[in-house]
Design a binder for these strands. Sequence first.
DNA 1: AGAATAGTGTCTATGAGACAGTATGAG
DNA 2: CTCATACTGTCTCATAGACACTATTCT
Lengths: 240, 240
Amino acid sequence: MPKLPKKVTRYAVAVDLVVLTIREEHLCVLAIQRAEAPFLRRWALPGGFVREGESLDAAARRELAEETGIDATFHLEQLQSYGEPKRDPRGRVISVAYLALSPSLPVASAGGDAAMAEWLPVDLLGASLGDSPELLRKGALAFDHGRILRDGVERARAKLEYTTLATAFCGATFTIAELREVYECVWGTKLDAANFYRKVTRSAGFVEPVSELKHGEGRPAQLYRGGKATLLSPPIVRAS
Amino acid sequence: MPKLPKKVTRYAVAVDLVVLTIREEHLCVLAIQRAEAPFLRRWALPGGFVREGESLDAAARRELAEETGIDATFHLEQLQSYGEPKRDPRGRVISVAYLALSPSLPVASAGGDAAMAEWLPVDLLGASLGDSPELLRKGALAFDHGRILRDGVERARAKLEYTTLATAFCGATFTIAELREVYECVWGTKLDAANFYRKVTRSAGFVEPVSELKHGEGRPAQLYRGGKATLLSPPIVRAS
DNA sequence: AGAATAGTGTCTATGAGACAGTATGAG
DNA sequence: CTCATACTGTCTCATAGACACTATTCT
């Protein structure tokens, strides 16, 4: 079996993770504070280099576990690759970005080589704003991670429309109001509670009731767990 | 400025292209016949290694031009990356796949190191079929290109729903019937001509009439060119 | 009782799909 | 004229959105 020619240039390949969750009615992203130059003490997405013999997905799961302790039973999907020659000042790095969705976790325990991990509200990072070079230059995130975050958030927003992914933001069981809050936080809009209720409960396979109620301020609410369906048709559409 | 540590493993990075077009009422993909081992004389997607200082997008455009002569004025977007350790028997290669859509071109002139380039109907390649290991083993395409092709076709199918991308399959001007044929070939379904006509012509920014008619067998048809819109809302949905 | 939230009824507007019907060319 | 295809009219059904209303708990 022939080998790859030596003259083919080799590149460092990293995975970067956009880990999203909802905390206190805000869409948040997991960020680590860099402990080294470049971008010392700036926030960055968790990630690391792909090891020998390790698939890209495996690298993403490993990094997720190492830097957050998350067991990756939640949603994890590949986002896109970023390979601009100058994107890392230390040398050329091709980065494969992943999107992970997680329920609200108590803390993000910093492990690995990350100085400190924290959930940051994405609206503070300008992720929903345009591509203004202004923002990118003084952007809160290191490298091109602002761009990656924006792409991840946009993917999540889009997928809430036509998949049942919103349940990945919820715990094992949840009320319809909590699920609605997911949509409202991710999309940054308000939804009509009555119409949302009908839509979700009548969409085959989206949610299944469990035999428990959640007691709160008003009338107790039926609890649900995620159903078997992954696609939602017809979708729930955002206001244009 | 610190450099990347030497111990970080480096990988060969390639781009692979899923170039789709419509030919004689069939969705076709550009394939080259391999001139070397491994997979000698098997069909494969066009592609090649990313060069030093070259962005991923630039590499994709270059390969597209080299192997097909296509000037890449048409649609080109990144699909996904594939990095299973064993996907290339010559050694580890991380491949960034791109999706390109092109109008029906007279021939695919083989250039570069491709032995021979050809448009192959995707339905002959089992791209619309499931993941059966049977098919993948004796699959028509080299490496994991069958999988990449399937992902590309699925992306194209999905994007026809909610974008105006279908016009990328057409020439500079086209009739509504030709545009409908694009949908029918890509989706493998029949659409109601009358409803499709209304839908497309009333969707702001999808198509713009030009001052010419196309004469054929029946009543001459108004010619259109692509409009300014890229998103389609409400979308055109496939039958489930 | 009153506040608060869960869940239901119902009306309206929009749009998809079915399909009949009309328009305009070629032979 | 006939045939073929382009385009229009119109009916029906499903569903989103608005919003009034009822249900069930807590204080």
